[in-house]
């Protein structure tokens, strides 16, 4: 009987260990399968995208060698141009004060033009045109500065009006309370 007890306990322990081992293996296997599947899906998606967007390069034909050469040259030129564009350094943003000064100087139209104009309206129109043209010439970075966070954070007119109304109400209430207190 002792042999049966020892054998049975051994069988129980070994089978439970084996079960745990295979269970853990399966769990790991399923995890790796999931990861592999996700990778596969990613790859498939990429292939799909590549298939959907064909390259716009001109096709070369065997029948017309002259045209082919011309096309090759064109492609090479285009590539060179794109490389040049990419290689050009991005112009650094100038000092803000300098830019502001420039604007101040340029905002005013030349004196000759103002003198030539008979009326003040025409002079203003000329000045406006000058400003618009100058703004068009200003680099993009500078224009973007007008819309910086600081400018956006400034409260709107409606907001200011509302605040004023609220403050007026509060002050009225205070006055009313004070009156009441005095009456008492």
């Amino acid at each position: 009987m002792k042999k049966i007890i020892i054998l049975s306990s051994l069988a129980f322990v070994t089978l439970s260990a084996l079960g745990l081992n295979t269970y853990l293996k399966n769990a790991r296997g399923s995890e790796t399968e999931i990861i592999e599947e996700s990778f596969k899906e990613d790859r498939e998606d990429k292939v799909m995208i590549e298939e959907k967007i064909p390259e716009k390069k001109p096709e070369l034909t065997k029948e017309k060698p002259q045209e082919n050469e011309q096309l090759e040259k064109k492609v090479q030129l285009e590539e060179k141009q794109t490389i040049k564009v990419k290689a050009e350094p991005v112009p650094a943003v100038e000092n803000k004060k300098q830019l502001e000064r420039k604007f101040d100087e340029n905002d005013m139209p030349p004196v000759e033009e103002v003198l030539e104009s008979n009326t003040a309206d025409t002079a203003l129109a000329v000045a406006d045109e000058k400003i618009i043209s100058d703004e068009a010439e200003v680099p993009r970075e500078v224009n973007l500065e007008h819309f910086s966070r600081a400018s956006l954070k400034q409260p709107s007119e409606t907001y200011i009006k509302k605040q004023e109304k609220i403050s007026a109400k509060v002050s009225k209430n205070k006055k009313y309370k004070k009156r009441k207190l005095f009456k008492k």
């Binding site: 049975s8 069988a11 129980f12 070994t14 089978l15 439970s16 079960g19 745990l20 295979t22 269970y23």
Partner: peptide, 10 residues
């Protein structure tokens, strides 16, 4: 019991 234990994992 031992076989039941093994199968219980699955």
């Amino acid at each position: 019991a031992p076989t039941g234990m093994y199968m219980s994992f699955f």
